[in-house]
Design a protein around this nucleic acid. Structure first.
Ligand SMILES: [Mn+2]
Ligand SMILES: [Mn+2]
Ligand SMILES: [Mn+2]
Ligand SMILES: [Mn+2]
Lengths: 228, 228
DNA sequence: AAAATAATTTAGTTTTGTCTAAAAATATTT
DNA sequence: AAATATTTTTAGACAAAACTAAATTATTTT
């Protein structure tokens, strides 16, 4: 496999994330995401097109080619494995890992990443709850759902938090909810769409806690997974 | 502390290593070391001079300034800690670590390196036996000596091997000598300057092995440390 | 279907790091 | 102390990645 520059890799990864939502990605969108200017994006798209990493028609946006997607998954794998390493082994906090992984992800030795994966015992999720692609680029297509859409009385695991503002983290900290927290939605009140949830203690240390209340705004930003 | 490019860091590190031997470093020397052209070196020296990282007078070579030396030690610290990590935790072999560390050394988070250091329990030497600068940039000025210059019957530890060719590694492997091996020189034969050495077993597993013979060429490439 | 607006591309620069070929300085021979 | 050889620097070009300002295309309004 060829070698790509840090800049090319950052573009490819950003396109991958943007097209999860949209499908087709737009010059201005990508410029905003990468904090660069639209003109720079156009230049790069021309280059990535000649390298066959994106499909691109001038004025009509772009999306990753098969090769581009493969590359994106390699970079995401590196990023998330390093994040896991930083959090798990070096005891970095949740919010700190991303910035450092943003650099580490561009060290391109395949052997390094596969050995790191093994050293970490093949973790399946990064500290933000996002799935880590395996060494073949296969990624769990998680049917992740926001708390509002969770069936009642079904045990689920918090896997993602979309808003990571200070205020959000403060609230989550207070309610003792984080990535990996297991919980059940017990009731849903139609008046304000607030939820009553029960948090399952990690290792049955203390007895069951009383159910707590979650506002609609908060529940819309918390995502979880469950079986079936 | 400011941030430097990968290229600038590679130059600084290379100058540091070259001036260990020489004192004053020369344009051609550095170009050879970095596999680049003399004209490129001159360009970079002008830049590093304006950044006050080197002392440089046209046509008269250069050496690191105090700031340049400080930077070099930071990069060497990163390089050797990553090498230790790769060898110790990811089970990379001795010869593989350098190339990967050559990239990792340019990820510049101070916190990353200090936490990595702690995670590794503050190792003092990299897998090649070279000392690792501490977080203040202090490096062990090891009075390392080649086997030829070792006093007789003094226990010493192999700390460095200057030639790392395949042939050399094959020979070392056969004689069961590596970084960290403890040994004593028992005799020196003036006819061919060959040595008779005794290898101290790591944990007295087997009884003392019989002494082995080392040629002058081999002994000149093995360095060791001893007390006092 | 024009006109107006918004999005995108093009043209022309800039910075960083590299290169080749020619010129200048230094070192070595004779 | 010249002449010659070697080393180093300068001059001019190039590729990558960014930017600004102007031109072009697409979309929305009227
Ligand atoms: Mn990045
Ligand atoms: Mn993440
Ligand atoms: Mn390097
Ligand atoms: Mn080393």
């Amino acid at each position: 496999m060829l070698n790509y520059s840090t800049s090319e890799e950052n573009y490819i990864k950003a396109i991958f994330h943007l097209q999860q939502a949209d499908g087709n990605v737009t010059t201005n969108e990508l410029a905003a995401e990468l904090k660069t200017k639209p003109a720079s994006v156009t230049d790069m798209m021309k280059k990535l097109k000649t390298k066959k990493l994106v499909h691109y028609r001038a004025y009509h946006g772009f999306r990753l080619s098969a090769d581009g997607t493969k590359l994106a998954l390699i970079i995401i794998r590196r990023h998330r494995l390093w994040e896991f390493f930083l959090a798990e082994k070096l005891k970095f906090s949740w919010e700190e890992v991303h910035a450092v992984a943003e650099d580490l992800e561009h060290v391109s030795s395949k052997k390094l990443i596969d050995k790191l994966d093994e050293f970490l015992s093949f973790p399946r999720f990064d500290p933000h709850g996002d799935p880590i692609p395996d060494s073949n680029g296969k990624i769990e297509t998680s049917k992740q759902v926001c708390l509002q859409d969770l069936p009642l009385n079904k045990l689920a695991m918090v896997s993602h938090v979309s808003d990571q503002s200070k205020e959000m983290l403060e609230l989550l900290g207070h309610k003792k909810i984080g990535i990996g927290t297991k919980l059940e939605v017990k009731r849903k009140f139609n008046f304000d769409n607030s939820l009553e949830i029960k948090i399952r203690q990690p290792r049955r240390t203390s007895p069951d806690q009383p159910p707590i209340n979650i506002s609609e705004q908060l529940s819309n930003n918390i995502f979880a997974k469950y079986d079936e």
